[in-house]
Nucleic acid binder design. Structure first.
Length: 275
DNA sequence: GTCCAGGCATGCA
DNA sequence: TGCATGCATGGA
């Protein structure tokens, strides 16, 4: 991949294994919206971005060298060799055609707090509705950052809300989880920096201390918000996929099971709808 | 009207 | 330990 700085835009050339449509709309991040021109606009870590791709060239609009190096390079996981990762995953004969069909799905390295909050909202919910709730949450309690966009509200900010405030956003029965989660995180009940450096099992145990966080949500948070590529979330769709692996997961998933999971999740949502 | 969605806490055995 | 149940909301 080659990086060019062109005015207020950043151009990446020879980008391999990145499909923006799949990556930004496959249920791992909830704040990206496709624009009429085919590009994607979204907010991450308090910063707005418009991104588009044509052939192997990616354009990041109205951004800076600093934001690219400090935020977006890591966010889009450009330090990982997805071509090699996909080759490894294709050693599994069941996954091979799925990797080909959805080639270019990447794991996004998102803000830990945003992912934690988002996936507590996600439980027993559908992706369209999750996006709506999070959009209303950000508009009501985030910081205005221009382009009509808002940052994801901090735990400190959300710790001032009542259960009723969360219910008003349409969070349903999860309101009580969010109310306590925000207060506990704001009070430092878990140490986000420490979790990053723990072994997977211990990191998961830390997250499970939180009210409203179970094994599935914890695994999503570890995979999308803490860089644990071997975390393997199993939701209602993945339970259906697991029937194809009666003998357990293949060895080629080791260390990158989370990425395999994202391809399988997307496949299940598109192919098993009549379940 | 019924069923379902990137599940969890709770109670009970 | 494992299993059954209730839970808010909106789209299909």
């Amino acid at each position: 991949m080659y990086v060019k700085y062109s005015g207020n835009d950043i151009v990446l050339e020879d980008v391999k294994c990145l499909d923006l449509d799949l990556t930004l709309d496959c249920g791992q991040a909830f704040r990206w919206e496709k624009q009429p021109d085919g590009s994607w606009s979204g907010v991450a870590k308090g910063v707005f971005l418009n991104i588009s791709k044509k052939n192997d060239t990616v354009i990041l609009k109205n951004t800076t060298k600093e934001d690219f190096e400090n935020i977006w390079f890591d966010y889009f996981d450009f330090n990982k060799d997805y071509v090699a990762i996909c080759d490894t995953l294709k050693k599994d004969k069941l996954l091979a055609p799925t990797v080909d069909e959805y080639y270019g799905i990447r794991i996004l390295n998102q803000d830990s707090w945003e992912v934690l909050c988002s996936f507590v909202i996600s439980q027993q919910n559908n992706i369209k509705r999750i996006k709506g709730i999070i959009s209303r949450l950000c508009t009501a309690y985030g910081e205005k950052i221009g382009n009509g966009c808002y940052s994801f509200p901090s735990a400190e900010k959300l710790s001032t809300l009542t259960v009723r405030d969360f219910e008003t956003l349409g969070t349903g029965y999860r309101a009580k989880y969010l109310e306590k989660l925000s207060k506990d995180v704001a009070a430092g009940k878990i140490d986000f920096e420490k979790i990053k450096n723990l072994p997977l099992d211990e990191a998961r145990k830390e997250l499970l201390k939180l009210y409203g966080v179970g094994v599935k949500v914890a695994n999503c948070v570890l995979l999308f918000g803490f860089g644990f590529y071997d975390a393997f979330p199993v939701d209602v769709w993945m339970k259906r996929v697991m029937e194809y692996y009666p003998d357990g997961l293949p060895a080629c998933f080791d260390g990158i099971g989370g990425i395999a999971q994202q391809y399988l999740f997307h496949w299940a949502r598109n192919h098993l709808k009549s379940y």
